[in-house]
Design a protein around this nucleic acid. Structure first.
Lengths: 214, 214
DNA sequence: CGTTGAATTCTACGCCTGTTGAGTTCGTCC
DNA sequence: GGACGAACTCAACAGGCGTAGAATTCAACG
């Protein structure tokens, strides 16, 4: 490769090393998950010594916490989506969501977060707080009526399923479809979950009480 | 702890050790993922020595392959679901799917498989072949017309999203909802993906079937 | 009763991991 | 032009991992 100066000590010129490490970490976490990504591999990809990674981020968890930050600000993005004709809010939401995932840079961070959520119970809680709380919670705040939580839960479930099929398992032909094609087919589903008629639970009739947990 | 006979050699009486190891492995893979689950932990949970696990299953991958087998036979289950009124096939499919996941025993194996698919590219390919090929492929074989692959892809995406929200992240209130409640709300979506009108990609006339977007 | 093989344990090797502490080079401020 | 701290590397520790091989105990069969 390049002439990797093995010499110790500070390198001349301004240093973009911290950012390089973060980029390498995002890629590594995305490609191999939290456990699979090693500090040594991240350091090698960034062209630095493993100890320098720890020097900057303290620990592997600290590195992950910075690498997996949300690439946009929910506080401003969500209201912008909700504002406007409620009948087409689903299209805007889906379009925004797919754009975030189709952009390579933000996809890496998101995928790392998702992978960690699937693996680690602790990360799942973090995911719940961040994704559910900051994103879906804001959507729920703009919706009227009872059963709002179920509605946004279904929306989140739909989005998660899309991510899984399209970006993780890469199920064809869904994975290669242009975003607009997905919007055309899935937006009606989300729109129904948001504002359409829904047989909400707790309605009279069936009284089956049953918990899926152990 | 109990009087764990640390003595080597065969134990008296008939041995159900192999099954005990498999059960422990399913639980461990489910709880911690492929990498997080260690042979030593599985062995400890089953009350045996780590080397015995290797003696039975050859390697960690071999253990996983047996622990994460599909708990039902797709060749018989899928046609049974498809048969009957096509207008209510979605309900039957969804009900069968949720039953498999709500049953603790099969859920463990399925979750392990899913976790591995998210983590490991190699396992994702295996998942694609198994889930997409054996399950969705059979569904697609019973559907008419063009764009069948997209339709079953959307169905798979919907199911995956439900699993993610309900069993992995445990997003409330979706996670605690009885299965019938989920069926009532989500079956229409799946039914539309299966047999309903869909703006299939590649279809002519992109313009103006809905309100102006951007 | 002796032999054979399966069930089971112990010990250990080699590898990789996250992390640490000491040491070296450079930019910057007085 | 020193002093100081930030950037950076090196070498090493302690621990966990998957796996291998020899040793021990039991069951089954002649």
């Amino acid at each position: 490769m390049v002439s990797s100066s093995n010499r110790p000590g500070r390198r001349p010129g301004p240093s973009a090393t911290r950012e390089a490490i973060l980029a390498a970490a995002r890629a590594a976490f995305t490609a191999h998950g939290y456990d699979g990504a090693t500090i040594r591999a991240v350091a090698a990809a960034a062209g630095v010594d493993p100890a320098l990674v720890l020097h900057y981020f303290g620990s592997k968890r600290g590195l992950f916490a910075e690498a997996a930050a949300l690439p946009f600000d929910p506080a401003t993005a969500i209201p912008a989506i909700i504002a406007g004709d409620p009948a087409t809010a689903a299209e805007r939401l889906l379009r925004f969501f797919l754009a975030a995932w189709d952009s390579g840079q933000s996809r890496d961070g998101l995928l790392a977060l998702l992978r960690a959520a699937v693996n680690d119970e602790q990360a799942a809680a973090m995911f719940r707080a961040r994704f559910a709380g900051e994103l879906l919670g804001r959507v729920a705040a703009q919706l009227p009526g009872p059963g709002v939580e179920v509605r946004v839960g279904l929306v989140g479930s739909t989005l998660a399923g899309l991510v899984f099929a399209r970006y993780i398992v890469r199920l064809e032909p869904l994975a290669s479809l242009p975003a607009e094609g997905v919007v055309a087919m899935v937006a009606p589903t989300i729109q129904r979950y948001l504002t359409g008629p829904l047989e909400l639970p707790g309605a009279p009739g069936e009284g089956g009480s049953h918990a899926p947990g152990d």
